[in-house]
Simulated scan of single mutants.
Amino acid sequence: MIRVLQRHILSSVLFASGAAVVFTTFVFAAGNFIKELLAPLLDGTLPASVVLKLTVLLLPYAAVYAVPIGLLVGTLLVMGRLSADNEITAMRSAGLSLWQISRAVLMFGLCGAAFALAINFEIMPRARTTYQVEIVRAFRQSAFNILAPKTFIRAFTGAVVYFNHKDGDELRDVWAWQLDSQQRVTRLIHAETATLDIDEDTATMVITFRNTTIEQRQAGDPEIRNKHDAIASFEETSIDISLAKLFNPRRARHKIEWLPTRELFAELKRVSAPDIPALDRLKVSMAVQEKFVTALAVFSFVLIGIPLGVRTQRKETSANLGIAVILVVVYHVLGSAAGGLDRHPELHPDWLMWLPNLLFVGLGIWLYHRAQRA
């Protein structure tokens, strides 16, 4: 009978938590989607197929925070419903302890914490690294795609480009007008051929001209051509054109927490050397500790969700969701307070990050003990 009851409770928690994790993951992913991908999708910079692929790669990053919240919501909803329907009372009347009733849910919480570790250390870093590579590649390709022959290309910042023929990355019979802040031509470039390259770190396109003639206008009033304009010929020269309108160089960044396990611990070992600044060492340590902390939060939330669900005796979804929101807000406020000390290595904020989990585990054990004795 006990196994049947445990399977019933576990299946209910599993279903409710799974639904909550999926919903929360898409909510968090939607925020990143709106911030990074919506504008390029709407203006046609990125095709829908590429945006869909990039959105899928955002899901593991969102799941890091969605899994603890989802399991907390699922546990509160199921235990609250069982308590409101007096099923917990019936089980207790049959001689079952709270431990026997909720043992499977606690084991589920431990499995969820192990799954969160896998997400934090392997799945999310690999997905996020792939995302960074793919989005830079996509914007790079979009920058090349807008270069159509026999068209005045005005998508760049501070320049207009025109050419008659394109052969791969090589342009032929190329004209380029560099503009000032008032959109006046300050330099006119004409070349027989030109090649393209993109520097993702600075978000610039480098155009290398060959067999070039350059007309440099006067700085005071470049719209008036006169004998003082400098005209020169070069066998090869280059200009940098900003691609800020197309993509932001911050998209190419790579954070420490996005390193996979082996590289992350190699970095942790490297910064452990005595000649490494304390702030650099603290930054890597906090990245490692945060992964463990967010994984343990899964079990902490389940542990505190069981007695809270039993004691609140609320069947209404809104009430249990309200409790979940309060717990999540308190947890993240405490975690953010510890993270805000990242400039003070003497206070050991990497260890203070464990404080919310310790408080929640301690509170959960106390509430669990009280519910067990009730």
Results as ranks from 00 to 15, higher is better:
M1T: 14
M1S: 13
V4A: 11
R7F: 09
I9V: 15
S11G: 13
V13S: 05
A16E: 06
V22P: 04
V22A: 11
N32H: 13
F33M: 08
L46P: 02
V50E: 11
K53V: 05
V64A: 12
A66Y: 04
V67K: 04
D85K: 11
T89Y: 06
M91A: 15
A94G: 15
G95N: 02
L98S: 02
C111H: 01
C111F: 14
F115N: 01
A116D: 12
I119P: 02
I119T: 08
P125S: 09
R128M: 14
V133R: 15
I135T: 15
V136F: 02
A138T: 10
A143D: 05
F152C: 09
I153Q: 08
I153F: 09
R154A: 12
A155E: 15
G158R: 00
Y162A: 08
F163T: 10
V174C: 03
D180R: 00
R187F: 06
H190L: 02
A194W: 00
A194L: 01
D197V: 07
M205D: 07
T208R: 14
T212E: 12
Q218W: 03
G220P: 01
D221H: 13
P222E: 02
K227P: 00
S233Q: 15
I239W: 10
I239L: 13
S242H: 01
S242I: 03
L243W: 04
R253K: 13
I256A: 09
I256P: 02
R262D: 10
E263A: 15
F265T: 03
A266L: 11
K283Y: 10
V284C: 11
V284G: 03
F292G: 11
T294F: 06
L303Y: 02
G305V: 03
I306Q: 05
P307H: 04
G309P: 04
E316A: 14
N320D: 10
N320A: 08
I323L: 13
I323R: 02
A324I: 03
L327H: 01
V328D: 05
V330S: 12
V330Q: 06
S336C: 11
S336Y: 08
L355T: 14
L359M: 12
F360E: 04
V361L: 14
R370G: 15
